[in-house]
């Protein structure tokens, strides 16, 4: 069969030829593999939030109508958001607790903005399994600690929305927010 190699115009005879040819096959298959991976990127990325969803990722809340002791439920990123105007008594109750002994140690001051301690802004999503706790609406069960109570599995939150009793592992999440004026906040 050696004569075949001699008539072969591509001159692929010998050890080097074999290696070069293997290399080309491997290169071709690798290129196809890289291409396949590159195609997967947009196929996966298209499931991320789209631009219109991201554009609604911040919520402005007007605080003027919320009296001390009241709370409102609004939405932030399509989830409930609790904005609570704490009374002096509730603030005192929250401050009285030794934060160090809590399941998720945090003081009320750490969970609110400096000088605006009466405005408690939290997500209305129980940190256990994501139910909406009661306590923001008028006449709802506020739980044993006067804050929020999640009826799904009985988690009790105190007036600083910290977990005090029940299965939830964390305090209600405080989203990133800032005061745009004395009576308005921008969440997100």
């Amino acid at each position: 069969m050696a004569s075949v190699e001699h008539t072969d115009s591509q001159g692929l005879a010998g050890e080097d030829g074999v290696r070069r040819r293997d290399f080309i096959n491997i290169a071709a298959v690798s290129f196809a593999g890289v291409g396949a991976v590159a195609v997967v990127i947009p196929l996966v990325d298209q499931m991320n939030p789209s631009a219109d969803v991201l554009a609604l990722a911040s919520t402005e809340v007007d605080l003027t109508a919320i009296q001390p002791g009241q709370a409102i439920k609004t939405t932030f990123r399509a989830q409930p958001l609790f904005v609570r105007h704490l009374t002096e008594k509730e603030i005192a109750e929250a401050d009285k607790v030794d934060a160090g002994g809590l399941r998720d140690p945090q003081t009320l001051a750490e969970r609110t903005v400096d000088g605006k301690k009466q405005w408690l802004v939290t997500m209305g999503v129980c940190t256990h399994l994501g139910c909406v706790p009661l306590g923001a609406g008028e006449g709802e069960n506020k739980g044993e600690f006067g804050g929020y109570f999640c009826p799904c599995h009985g988690s009790h939150y105190d007036t600083a929305a910290r977990i005090r009793k029940g299965p939830a592992p964390k305090n209600l999440e405080v989203p990133k927010f800032a005061f745009t004026s004395d009576t308005a906040i921008l969440v997100g």
Partner: peptide, 18 residues
């Protein structure tokens, strides 16, 4: 990629010749 595929294709068929 297509140029490589072409070369690979030619090589594989060259092998057949042998």
């Amino acid at each position: 990629a297509t140029a490589l595929a072409y070369m690979s294709y030619q090589n594989i068929w060259a092998d057949k010749k042998k």
